[in-house]
């Protein structure tokens, strides 16, 4: 069998006394849509930060496509095909939507030690950027400064920027965070459309989305993976029900 696209072995990370990632093991198979759920503060974002290379684990290993990437920088991981989106919107506020996406495309086209030709008029950047913006329904907002986009549009741009790096594995940290019901439904539909095209790790609070889209679900509580399995298996898991699902109906909201 092929290597899993991502394999995390015995990952540990603590902040002072808080253990945010605790002896965590898991893997994502090629093409798999894997969801992580867990209560607030469970360590989901911390996990994404370590996988994407923005935070150094205290110990443990991360393998991407069979290669140990634990020591690589975030930029190096991005070039291998790892992309992340941010729970807290992290766009370039003073660039237009198109420029935001074009920067991701520029990054994947090799080095940027090019000093003369205006990037704004470089069709090898603007055309693919427009393509991705239209996929996300932002084509008519391409020239708007990211700062002037609505919250929902910023969240869409957040995903567009990750997609534009042409990844093999997408790490999406609560892509619908803070979005209205209508907008988030649209984004979830869009994510459903990505299923099968990319290997994906989705962090999401909405149980309906998770259980309808994910191939497998991992439940994270206090930094520990307490269960991994198909949506049915996880739903039926007694420990999960006790620790999370059963007790916390708010999670369904």
């Amino acid at each position: 069998m092929a290597d899993p696209i991502l394999k995390v072995e015995d990952l540990m990370k603590s902040f002072g006394g808080v253990v945010a990632t605790d002896q965590f093991f898991f893997d994502i198979q090629q093409g798999e849509f894997h969801a992580i759920i867990g209560p607030n503060g469970a360590g989901k974002t911390t996990l994404v930060a370590q996988i994407s290379g923005m935070l150094k684990p205290d110990s443990g290993r991360i393998l991407f496509d069979g290669q140990d990437i634990t020591g690589l920088s975030a930029a190096e991981r991005s070039h291998l095909g790892l992309a992340r989106s941010f729970q807290i919107t992290s766009v370039f506020r003073h660039f237009s939507a198109r420029q935001n996406v074009a920067l991701s495309i520029q990054a994947r086209q090799g080095h940027s030690f090019r000093f003369w030709k205006p990037a704004a008029r470089d069709s090898s950047l603007t055309e693919p950027a427009m393509k991705i913006l239209s996929d996300l329904g932002l084509a008519n907002r391409a020239n708007v400064l990211a700062d002037n986009l609505s919250h929902g549009e910023k969240r869409q741009l957040e995903i567009a920027m990750a997609l534009a790096t042409d990844p093999k594995l997408l790490l999406l940290d609560e892509p619908t965070a803070g979005m209205g019901a209508e907008d988030s439904a649209r984004i979830r539909e869009f994510l459903g459309g990505l299923k099968g095209k990319y290997s994906m790790l989705l962090i999401e609070h909405d149980m309906d989305t998770v259980f309808s889209l994910a191939d497998r679900v991992t439940v994270l509580v206090y930094g520990r993976g307490i269960a991994t399995g198909t949506p049915e298996e996880v739903r039926g898991n007694a420990e999960v029900r006790a620790a999370y699902l059963g007790e916390d109906d708010a999670a369904h909201a």
């Binding site: 923005m54 930029a75 940027s112």
Partner: peptide
């Protein structure tokens, strides 16, 4: 206005995001 300039301006705005999308 060049690609290089866009990278420099991007670093000013949000260096962490620049690294995340692949810029050393």
């Amino acid at each position: 206005n060049s690609r290089f300039g866009m990278v420099i301006r991007g670093c000013h705005e949000n260096e962490a995001r620049m690294q995340a999308i692949g810029f050393p």
